[in-house]
Computed example of a mutant assay.
Amino acid sequence: MPNDLVTVFGASGFVGRHIVRALTAQGFRVRAVCRKPNLANYLLPAGHVGQIQLLKANINNEEDVARALEGAVAAVNAAGVLFGHGLQSLEAINADASGRIARAALKADVGTLVHVSAIGADTQAISEYARTKGLGERAVHEGFPRAVIMRPSLVFGPEDAFFNRFAAMARFLPALPLIGGGKTKFQPVFVGDVAAAVARAVSDPAMAGRTYQLGGPKTYTFRALLEFILAETGRKRLLMPLPFWLAGLQGFFLQMPSFILPIKPMLTVDQVRLLKSDNIVQDGAFTLDDLDIEPTSVEKIVPTYLWRFHPKGQFRDVQRLAAH
């Protein structure tokens, strides 16, 4: 039981909460950095009494970041946004804050920094999300050269924004959009595997300076994933091919309210741009296999939380058994 302190930025997010759980399971004390710690009390049961400390901090503020790193032996940056709003813009969070955390970690003599990025991160990408993720990686390398970069593909788990979102849409819509014809490829990775990889990086000095691409055991097209969602939720819906240009037009109008109100849009122009590129692990990259982590399949995990979107809810399996 190391009993060492690890600072986790973005601890209350989807990936961050699982990272906190993985670190506490290894015996680390965790300083969970959040913008609104009063809404993050659900993190506390992930550890023993006193093992997790909630800290209010703004990662856009250098003093807050420095204070969050005091006494930490390692830090994890799991902060990131898919759609920006106000001061929480893509540039500010994905790029600028990443560099700020890296520089502060080096100054605070933190031993290890793990940065959660994304497959497709590229400073020259047409998507602002992918571009700012690429800028963030560059800033991290410049500020903390021995940082470990984690690039997950589409991350799935009980709180994910992909399977849950499309399952919810299928409850009310007669058709689901096949943006770009549904040909884009994904390699979905379980959030628990991502968290395990991050926790391993915190405690393994041999991983310093490496970039890992994290993907699951199988690749799927966008169409195949929607078909899987419909099968698991017992819904029969039309899959309507939607050209990129038309999807971009819809995204333009759907994102407009989010420029005024702090709400997450169903679709944005930038998300359509993201779908123009496959999201899979590249040949020759460091992967989960190099960490002796066996990737968990979509089929094993996703049905355990999509049942609530089925017309029969938790009784869907009773119906299946009766049919046999």
Rank of each mutant, 00 (worst) to 15 (best):
Gly13Val: 12
Gly99Pro: 06
Lys183Asp: 13
Ile293Val: 02
Pro217Thr: 02
Ala79Cys: 12
Ile101Lys: 02
Leu261Thr: 11
Thr304Val: 04
Arg320Ala: 11
Arg31Pro: 02
Ala104Thr: 01
His115Val: 08
Leu69His: 02
Gly16Ile: 14
Ala322Ser: 09
Pro205Met: 01
Leu5Asn: 02
Pro2Ile: 05
Gly50Leu: 05
Ile229Asn: 06
Ser277His: 14
Glu294Asp: 00
Ser258Phe: 02
Gly216Cys: 04
Ala175Asp: 06
Leu54Ile: 01
Ile149Val: 15
Ser203His: 01
His18Gly: 02
Val81His: 09
Ile301Val: 13
Tyr220Arg: 05
Ala95Cys: 15
Leu249Met: 14
Pro158Trp: 01
Ala79Asn: 03
Leu225Arg: 14
Ala125Cys: 11
Gln250Ile: 12
Thr24Asn: 06
Ile263His: 05
Ala25Tyr: 04
Asn164Thr: 05
Gly136Tyr: 09
Ala11Leu: 05
Leu178Ala: 10
Asp64Ile: 07
Ile52Pro: 00
Leu230Lys: 14
Ala197Asn: 01
Val8Met: 07
Phe83Val: 15
Ile179Ser: 11
Val33Ile: 05
Pro152Gly: 07
Ala147Ile: 06
Ala68Asp: 00
Pro158Met: 05
Asn279Ala: 13
Met256Trp: 13
Phe244Gln: 13
Met1Val: 06
Arg316Lys: 15
Phe244Trp: 15
Arg138Met: 13
Arg200Gln: 09
Gly16Lys: 09
Asp160His: 04
Ala167Met: 08
Ala118Val: 13
Asp270Ile: 08
Arg146Trp: 03
Glu70Asn: 01
Ala104Arg: 05
Leu173Trp: 11
Leu261Val: 14
Val202Lys: 02
Ala170Cys: 09
Arg31Met: 05
Asp160Met: 03
Ile126Asn: 14
Lys133Arg: 14
Val33Tyr: 08
Ser89Trp: 10
Gly248Pro: 03
Asp283Asn: 06
Gly182Ala: 09
Ala75Thr: 05
Glu70Met: 00
Ile126Asp: 15
Ala125Met: 11
Ala78Asp: 02
Ile293Thr: 06
Leu44Gln: 01
Val298Thr: 03
Ala78Thr: 05
Glu299Ile: 01
Phe9Val: 11
Ile149Glu: 03
Phe144Gly: 05
Val269His: 10
Ile293Met: 01
Arg138His: 12
Leu242Trp: 07
Glu62Trp: 12
Leu238Asp: 08
Pro45Lys: 02
Gln255Ser: 14
Glu294Leu: 00
Ala121Trp: 12
Leu306Pro: 06
Ser117Ile: 05
Val65Asp: 01
Ala208Leu: 04
Asn58Cys: 12
Arg29Val: 00
Pro177Glu: 09
Lys185Ser: 07
Ile19Tyr: 01
Ala147Thr: 06
Glu128Ile: 11
Glu227Val: 10
Leu225Asp: 14
Glu159Gln: 10
Glu294Ser: 04
Asp96Trp: 11
Met169Val: 07
Val194Tyr: 04
Gly143Trp: 12
Pro295Ser: 03
Lys107His: 06
Ala66Pro: 00
Ala195Cys: 02
Ser203Pro: 00
Gly284Lys: 03
Leu246Lys: 07
Tyr42Ile: 01
Leu239Asn: 07
